[in-house]
Design a protein around this nucleic acid. Structure first.
Lengths: 386, 386
DNA sequence: TCCATTTAGTACGAGAGTCGAACGAGATAT
DNA sequence: ATATCTCGTTCGACTCTCGTACTAAATGGA
């Protein structure tokens, strides 16, 4: 039972102010009042609180045509966040400030033994902690290609990462004394998009990450959809063909078996004798060089990507679908095929969702870790626009 | 930009109190204080307001073992709601009080001309309005097997109802002077479930309505998922087989082509010479009488129902899936098949959603209309539990 | 019968918050 | 110098909850 008292009012308004400063900095108190609709006096009180808590700094003054000069406010970038992006092949540990500017970034190969990985991650984090003694570390955000159980903190589903049933949060939290937030990679990309891509107004969007597998992150009514045991978004494991090839999840014919990077490689190998140690990037290059079999393989992958997205278009009717993965480099190849499928799914009268590729994959996840940690203070990013 | 002031606090707490009275009536002020965590004094003030506005009535006193007798509070059932349930074959116009007790109900055949239908609905409503002069009518809630566009109020997608592009809200609102709320039938069932089935704690559920077509209503994080143009929930029109039979939506091989009542009849007709004018209910009866072809047809339908639900299980991970439709009468036939498919979809570590049939279909929609109208004052039903 | 005990509901002052008007600060234009 | 304009602060009014004190009403025992 969540009853409200006066402090709740302050909490709500404080979030609004903090988010306005974040998204429009540098900004003056007067402008905050105009943007939010609150009184200048109220804004002053809230800003005073934020300055005292070192969330906000007073900056230089503006130069208006007439009248007293406004004092600009901006976020204090001495508050930093440690982000960890875990992938099947590599782990990135990075440091960013509240404005999501990354100041350091280290990459390591992913150990096959999760215990070793945890130890290694802790060492990297501790090195970062030592390097920024004068700053306030807000917390650690971790994204991973899988799901974990909220209560037990155990990794429960990460077929493309071979780890199983391990607790990532507690060991890292204990070793560093910092708060640790974990999130599925696709969901983290959703957060990153809403927070840092000026998409506050978009309250229904889906991120589709395509690599070894396919993940989807769902934003609905401005909130992340988590579902039972944090498992919402596994459209990648819906069977398109129950008789299809085996999937890493144990089932058959899942969407990701037909539409992931791995699938394209399989299509290529099926149609061609050579190309055994090939990677997906190589396949993209081959297609660009005019290898018709590579083109065909990618086309098939694109077709299936679009076909799977029909579930998302029909079932969730998002305003926007964001595609992340290596394939975005050859969007001229994938975009038209996917968009045709999506348009075919739009029912009479329905709106057509915008399908956009989001390049620079790595940063999307890392930016997600920052949002993940800051969420506690700023809200879901989309909430503020409501 | 939704800033908060003191009144917001009252608004929130008032909703909590109103919902507690609704769900636990009769209840005393002291019990409200205990249940909500607010002070008795605060509760008294809020209750005074609610009594003044005729939302709440003071009832008889309780008989505790010791101490002063509590005065019980209950909702004022002189506040009534008019509910309209539009279906392809029939339209029901009903009157209910705030406790969702229905006091009258009239059924009419659905006219093929939507203009005629609107006129007819208005007449029925006006008859009801005349019949309850001493009561306060809160509004009109309408559910329909389709979608409408929020801004233009036009019906944009209702393949099983033959109407197209008509404005239902404004004519009825103008003729009656009452507020009109429209909602898709499956979404209305979601509201009804959360409001009246003691499922306040369930924040992620999906309702699947099976009749001529298949509709789904989605509750996520305690909120109805609406999506772009109110189209979220059309899983029924995702193609399971792009080469399959034509669907009313214009596409091919949609889920509902394989798993609706109509699909079962088609399976039966394909396997049997006779049975031309058969309805779905007849098919259920034939199966009960031991007609193996009918059993087979229903089994196929059940299989496909389960297969389509895999999209929902994987993509949304709901805690609960509620199935509504004539098929619930023969749940012993459908339940096991559907549940097997659903369990097959649950990924390692994921939770198993509860699949339950909800009988008495008609009432689910009508109860939804009541929730629809009262939402404005009580909130989403699930919100209060948060 | 009277009084202690217990529970329900109310009264009232304190505290937190926002609003809005008035005021002071600082800059420009006349 | 003075008028004007804008930014930021101060202060009293208003709203709302909390917590304590108080009143109301019932039971049970002396």
């Amino acid at each position: 039972m969540q009853t409200a008292s006066s402090e709740v009012v302050r909490h709500i308004n404080r979030r609004i102010v903090l988010n306005l400063i974040r998204t429009r900095q540098p900004i003056s108190r007067a402008d905050l009042a105009r943007a939010s609709g609150m009184q200048r006096s109220t804004i002053s009180l809230i800003v005073e609180e934020l300055v005292n808590e070192h969330w906000v700094l007073e900056g230089p003054t503006g130069r208006p045509p007439r009248g007293r000069r406004p004092t600009f406010l901006r976020l204090n970038d001495d508050r930093v966040i440690i982000g960890v992006d875990i992938r099947p092949t590599q782990i990135t540990v990075a440091l960013a400030d509240v404005n999501c500017k990354f100041t350091s970034q280290t990459v390591m190969a992913t150990p096959s033994d999760p215990e070793v990985a945890v130890k290694s991650i802790i060492q990297h984090i501790q090195a970062i902690v030592r390097s920024c003694e004068k700053k306030k570390i807000e917390g650690i955000g971790i994204t991973l290609p899988g799901r974990f159980h909220q209560d037990s903190n155990r990794l429960i589903f990460a077929p493309n990462l071979k780890w199983r049933d391990i607790d990532l949060r507690n060991p890292i939290a204990k070793a560093t004394g910092l708060e640790v937030e974990l999130e599925n990679a696709a969901s983290a990309c959703v957060l990153a998009t809403v927070w840092f891509n000026r998409l506050e107004a978009c309250r229904n969007l889906v991120v589709v990450t395509v690599s070894e597998g396919i993940g989807t992150g769902i934003l609905m009514n401005g909130q992340l959809a988590r579902g039972l045991n944090n498992m919402a978004g596994e459209f990648g494991h819906v069977p398109l063909d129950p008789e299809g090839p085996l999937c890493t999840c144990g089932s058959r014919g899942c969407w990701e078996v037909f539409a992931s990077n791995r699938a394209a490689l399989r299509y290529y190998l099926e149609s061609s004798r050579h190309g055994d140690g090939l990677g997906f990037q190589d396949l993209l290059s081959l297609a660009d060089q005019g290898d018709t079999r590579a083109v065909k393989a990618l086309d098939t992958m694109a077709h299936y990507l679009g076909r799977g997205m029909r579930m998302i278009v029909a079932g969730l009717a998002p305003e926007r679908i964001i595609v992340i993965g290596d394939l975005t480099r050859s969007w001229h190849r994938f975009g038209p095929v996917i968009e045709a499928e999506v348009r075919a799914q739009v029912l009479p009268g329905g709106g057509v969702p915008v399908v956009v590729p989001e390049h620079e994959d790595g940063m999307a996840r890392l930016r997600g870790t920052v949002a993940l940690v800051l969420q506690k203070h700023f809200g879901t990013g989309a909430t503020l626009a409501s």
